[in-house]
Simulated scan of single mutants.
Amino acid sequence: MSRIDPKPLSAYPWFIRWFLGRQRRVYGAVLAPSWLWGRLPGTFLGMLVLLSMFQRRSYPVDTALRSLVSIRIAQLNGCGFCVDLNAHNFLKARGEESKAKDVAQWRDSELFSARERAALGWAEAVTLTCADIESDAIDRLRNEFSEDEITALTAWIGFQNMSAKFNAALGAEEHGFCALPGKGHQQDV
């Protein structure tokens, strides 16, 4: 249960009510984070615009890799909703259940490519020790990513950290998107 209850639907501005209604039609319910973000209509609208920019086909980091990185960020931040949603997005993009289940053990698993390992390592560094990242970390990323891709990946990681921390802090519950066994809060580092 979220730590902050939704306001009555009529208390949200019309454009937020429209968005919540659309979620209800698409997912069968309003997703818990939307009730929370809806309390800040302008911020929520800005976040949705930013999310739409990340989801463009021309974005330098593809959907499957963004979803994989997002699962790991969600695990590290303890956001069950985000693990649920991003595992669903990864399975939809790639259909690789074994990889989705093994994200917390990416260092020891042979399922991950060098590019995925670089992205997951960078996601962990930015999430856990951002102020202590060594300058050669970018040089290691350059083996797999262009500078534009590194910038795009870092922007995505920052966005996902904001979202996961917000949802975890306010207790946004899972929706049940993904029936992956053991998708809970794996925080192995």
Rank of each mutant, 00 (worst) to 15 (best):
L51F: 10
F90Y: 15
L91R: 13
L120F: 06
W18T: 11
R25W: 01
D136E: 14
N86K: 04
R56C: 03
P41C: 09
Y12C: 07
F81E: 02
M53E: 13
K101L: 11
L76N: 09
L85C: 07
A100W: 05
W35N: 04
F19E: 03
A155M: 15
A114T: 11
D84P: 01
A87I: 03
N167E: 12
T154W: 06
F177Q: 08
E97N: 01
R22T: 10
F81C: 05
Q105T: 12
L85M: 14
L153T: 09
R57I: 00
G184S: 12
K183G: 14
H185M: 06
V61T: 03
R3P: 01
I138H: 06
A100N: 05
S67V: 04
T127P: 02
F19W: 12
W156D: 02
G28I: 08
G21P: 04
V26L: 12
V49R: 15
E174P: 04
A74V: 07
L141S: 06
R57V: 00
C79Y: 00
G28Y: 10
T151D: 11
T129P: 00
W37I: 02
D5T: 09
A169S: 15
Q160L: 07
L141P: 03
L153P: 00
L91E: 11
F44N: 03
R115W: 07
A11V: 00
I157Q: 03
E110D: 14
L20I: 08
P181N: 09
P8G: 05
K92A: 13
L128M: 11
A179Q: 14
D108E: 14
